[in-house]
């Protein structure tokens, strides 16, 4: 689950248009080699995101048994 977006306004608009907004659940499909981008599924959309940007998306685990990253 997305808790908050700590990003500059330009990126926030883009992320929200792609479906990443507080309260939305997302799924990490894979991480690229050599600390490459992250492959995410948000709703019906799949997208890639750099780790540095992904780090600014605060999430909490939907599964209570796992700690939030």
């Amino acid at each position: 689950m997305v808790a908050a977006l700590a990003v500059e306004p330009g990126l926030r608009h883009r992320l929200e248009a792609l479906g990443i907004k507080p309260g939305q659940s997302l799924k990490v499909l894979r991480r690229g080699w050599w600390s490459g981008p992250i492959h995410l599924q948000v709703g019906m959309t799949e997208l890639m995101l750099r780790r540095i940007d992904a780090a600014r998306i605060q999430v909490f685990s939907a599964d209570p048994s796992r700690a939030a990253p």
Partner: peptide, 9 residues
């Protein structure tokens, strides 16, 4: 610049 790209089906 941050990079956010769609990966279409």
């Amino acid at each position: 610049e941050s990079l956010v790209l769609e990966l279409p089906p």
